[in-house]
Simulated assay, not measured.
Amino acid sequence: MIFLCYPKCTTCQKAQKWLDNNGLSYELRNIKENNPTLEELKKWHKMSGLPLKKFFNTSGLIYKSLKLKDKLQGMSEEEQYKLLASDGMLVKRPIIITSNKTLVGFSEIDYKEMIK
């Protein structure tokens, strides 16, 4: 399992604590230092079953400064992937990737479901 996070993010800290408390092993990846590639994002998006829009960190400073709330709708999926791959801080976190599932954000319910 890969756990993508930004160490200063409180939601990521909660998710990591949950993983640790439940004895799960994972590969930790700092999303700011090692942002997802275009290929990874495409694969994870497909595995998540979520709209691509859910991969954007809508509360982030970069998202807001680029005024993406207004621009995303007019962008192609390929343009959105390229934008996400350009800076890890644009990507919603934490992200968990298992062999067959991608979870975006932290939901204790989803995490419990994942370990069943």
Rank of each mutant, 00 (worst) to 15 (best):
Gln80Met: 03
Lys69Ala: 02
Gln16Ser: 12
Glu108His: 08
Ile96Lys: 04
Leu72His: 00
Lys71Met: 11
Lys43Ser: 14
Met114Ile: 03
Pro36Gly: 11
Gln13Thr: 08
Leu19Ile: 05
Asp20Cys: 07
Ile96Pro: 06
Glu33Tyr: 13
Asn57Val: 00
Trp18Val: 00
Lys116Arg: 08
Tyr6Pro: 02
Glu33Gln: 06
Ile115Asn: 09
Phe106Val: 12
Lys8Ala: 14
Pro7Leu: 00
Gln16Trp: 11
Asp20Pro: 00
Asn21Asp: 15
Ser59Tyr: 13
Ile2Met: 13
Leu90Gly: 01
Leu66Cys: 02
Met89Thr: 09
Leu83Met: 01
Thr37Ile: 08
Lys116Thr: 12
Phe3Val: 04
Glu39Phe: 00
Glu39Trp: 04
Ile2His: 12
Thr58Gly: 12
Thr98Asp: 13
Glu78His: 05
Gln16Leu: 10
Lys43Cys: 13
Leu52Ser: 05
Gln80Gly: 10
Gly23Thr: 11
Lys116Leu: 13
Leu61Cys: 07
Glu113Pro: 02
Glu108Ser: 15
Leu90Pro: 01
Ala85Asn: 01
Lys116Ile: 04
Leu28Cys: 04
Met75Gln: 05
Lys67Asp: 05
Leu84Ile: 01
Pro94Met: 00
Leu103Trp: 12
Cys12Trp: 08
Gly23Arg: 07
Ser76Phe: 08
Ile97Asn: 14
Gly49Asn: 05
Leu41Ile: 13
Ser59Ala: 13
Ala85Pro: 10
Lys71Pro: 11
Pro7Asn: 13
Glu33Leu: 01
Lys53Gly: 11
Leu19Gln: 04
Arg93Phe: 11
Glu78Phe: 00
Glu79Pro: 01
Asp87Tyr: 09
Phe3Asp: 15
Leu19Val: 01
Ser107Ile: 03
Met89Ala: 03
Lys32His: 15
Thr102Trp: 06
Gly23Asn: 12
Leu83Arg: 01
Pro7Ile: 10
Ile97Gln: 15
Ser99Asn: 13
Ser65Lys: 10
Leu19Ser: 14
Ser107Glu: 12
Glu27Tyr: 04
Met89Asp: 03
Met89Asn: 11
Asn21Gln: 05
Glu77Thr: 05
Leu90Ala: 03
Leu83Cys: 02
Thr98Asn: 07
Lys32Thr: 14
Lys8Asn: 10
Leu61Ile: 10
Gly105Gln: 06
Leu61Met: 10
Leu83Lys: 00
Met1Cys: 11
Lys92Arg: 14
Cys5Asp: 15
Asn30Asp: 15
His45Met: 06
Ile62Glu: 14
Leu61Ala: 15
Cys12Asn: 05
Met47Ile: 08
Leu72Pro: 05
Met47His: 13
Thr37Lys: 07
Gly23Met: 06
Tyr81Pro: 04
Leu90Glu: 07
Gly105Tyr: 04
Lys32Cys: 13
Glu108Cys: 05
Leu72Met: 01
Glu39Thr: 04
His45Thr: 14
Glu39Ser: 09
Ser65Glu: 09
Leu68Gln: 00
Lys32Met: 15
Gln73Arg: 04
Ile96Glu: 06
Lys54Cys: 15
Gly49Ile: 02
